[in-house]
């Protein structure tokens, strides 16, 4: 196995260990700690939305006009109709394919 690929394997193992730590962490903490400070709790609460937004916003701005339109349409319809992520994916995919087909 070449060293670069070996690095990827190590990376996956590290990600697996990190994930496992989050899954036992709460159990270990709760048996140690009485209560979580409110500001820490607020910060922890913000983590998923804050991290995931950084993967959405740049794609929306720099992903190209077709991707921007597809994301906007998927967002608007999914929010309006309260659709699942899977349906939203289908809408985004259909819009981008239609635009690309028309542009060809």
């Amino acid at each position: 196995m070449d060293p670069q690929h070996l690095n990827l394997i190590y990376l996956i193992i590290a990600a697996a260990v990190a994930t496992f730590l989050t899954r036992v962490g709460g159990y270990i903490l709760i048996t140690q700690m009485k209560e979580i400070p409110p500001r820490l709790e607020a910060a922890l609460n913000a983590v998923p939305a804050a991290v995931l937004t950084t993967l959405v916003a740049p794609a929306f701005v720099y992903g190209g006009l077709d991707v921007t339109i597809a994301m906007f349409v998927a967002f608007a319809i999914a929010l309006g109709l309260n659709l699942s992520t899977l349906r939203m994916l289908v809408i985004g995919w259909v819009v981008v394919m239609v635009i690309r087909h028309l542009a060809m």
Binding site: A18, T22, G26, I30, V47, V51
Partner: peptide, 23 residues
């Protein structure tokens, strides 16, 4: 690589709350 692992950790951080809650 460290940022990849940290991001995975961050995205999964909600699990800390889960394991605390089902303890």
């Amino acid at each position: 690589p460290w940022l990849v692992v940290l991001s995975v950790f961050a995205v999964n951080f909600r699990h800390v709350l889960y394991s605390a809650s089902i303890a």
